[in-house]
Design a protein around this nucleic acid. Structure first.
Lengths: 247, 247
DNA sequence: CGTTTGCTTGACAGCATTCAACGTTGGTGG
DNA sequence: CCACCAACGTTGAATGCTGTCAAGCAAACG
């Protein structure tokens, strides 16, 4: 279980971490836990791991050891088909978990790549199982988080199958802004961590179309666009675009 | 928890059911359990429920009580956006579970509709939690099934964002055939339980396009199509279409 | 300062949607 | 038993959105 040593690309920070003192505890796994539950949880999340921009946290085909909570930084997860085409399945920011794909057959089925220098909390699955067994709120919260991932993907499926390009980008930006706001950042000024191509692969569009949509939303006065610096000038218009599917 | 009585559309069959004697035990939740584990499991899955064609097993907004295992029949799950557009997120057949969407905030976020007269095993969440706590293989298997759902959805996302219409339909049919084969049915002769529109909503296509693709695959000699009776004449060609994304 | 990478924009072609008409099937009631 | 109706499926023609190819531009990096 601890045989991560064959991954020389990663730097390890064995420093002690405590969920109880983490400023992400309202967003991450231990939502709504009691103080003594928090203490028990610190047994579970014992180590951090640093991943440099461009490196992978895990990779398709690697054995599944556990899940990871993003502490700082930004990730993308992408499944690639046998024939090369790559699909970004999600972007994860602080407080969000990744790695659930590996539980189905003990092998990861997608790659997790850091889009900036990042740090994650390592949650070994064996210990998570144990602790979830004696600790109802952890069990339930873990299920809740996995369920939320399923529901999120339903939303992506709807986006991919029924929205036009501009609506997809609007939905993407709205979602990003909302998640940033929940973390205390500005909901209007965002610095994108991902390229146009990565956005396109996530939204089912070519990078050119993504770029064109940015320009169009800029012309419409909804956004201010300067490369990866985006300012949302008219959040209401953005939301309206998202909702406006076949109205 | 047991307040299902406000749903007059459902017929209840309180007959005793045993996982240990179910012919789906190799496909459903209790994969790889020991005989004594099977006995304990029968405490969990105590009741069945019948759902007539067209009726819902659960509906968006209804409180979450538990998950369901399809015993006989066929279901679709669909999330609908506020503005009316509906997205079929999956089709479930015997041995497959549904209802995971409700764990995220104790309310179902999509509808489950029977596409033919069906019977499900009711798995109350409270009891599932309990039993999973004292019963490692159940805990692990449950996680595995949820993870598999996440991975499946990754596949759908890839399909939606990078395949052309004909490839999508080929992928859909291949998948269906494979699942039917795993249940002892013919992998070549399928009777579709869903309409062209439902297929289209699942695959992100209009019903006309679905129909046209059926015709085209028929012309190519890959399928025999008679309404909902499909015969796969050339499974290899079908698989090749799926794999052939951007080759 | 030059090179590389990422982003923008234009032109054009192609695939899928939309609108519309017609055919088919199965159920209902005369 | 047949006629009718409604739901579903098929097919055609035209529009339009998005992908592809290509060129030019901006920013980042060594």
């Amino acid at each position: 279980m601890e045989s991560d040593s064959d991954c020389p690309a990663f730097a390890y920070a064995p420093a002690k971490v405590a969920c109880s003192s983490c400023n992400l505890r309202e967003l991450c796994l231990p939502v709504g836990f009691s103080p003594q539950e928090f203490e028990r949880l610190d047994e579970l999340v014992a180590t951090r791991r640093s991943v440099r921009r461009g490196d992978t946290l895990f990779r398709r085909g690697e054995p599944f050891h556990g899940v990871y909570a993003v502490r700082t930084g930004f990730f993308k997860t992408c499944s690639s088909s046998e024939e090369g085409r790559e699909q970004v399945t999600g972007f994860q920011m602080a407080g969000e978990l990744l790695g659930f794909d590996g539980m189905s057959d003990s092998v990861h089925s997608c790659d997790a790549v850091a889009l900036e220098d990042s740090q994650v909390c390592v949650i070994p699955y064996a210990r998570l199982e144990e602790l979830a067994r004696e600790f109802t709120s952890l069990q339930r919260q873990f299920h809740r988080v996995m369920s939320r991932e399923i529901v999120r993907e339903h939303g992506v499926m709807m986006l991919l199958s029924s929205m036009r390009a501009e609506e997809r980008l609007a939905a993407f930006l709205s979602n990003l802004a909302q998640r940033l706001e929940a973390r205390g950042f500005s909901a209007s000024a965002l610095l994108l961590r991902m390229s146009r191509e990565e956005i396109g692969t996530y939204l089912g569009l070519s990078l050119e179309t993504v770029s064109r949509c940015f320009s169009r939303l800029h012309e419409q006065g909804v956004l201010e666009v300067q490369q990866r610096n985006i300012r949302i000038l008219d959040p209401a218009a953005l939301k309206k675009l998202v909702a406006g599917v076949s109205v």
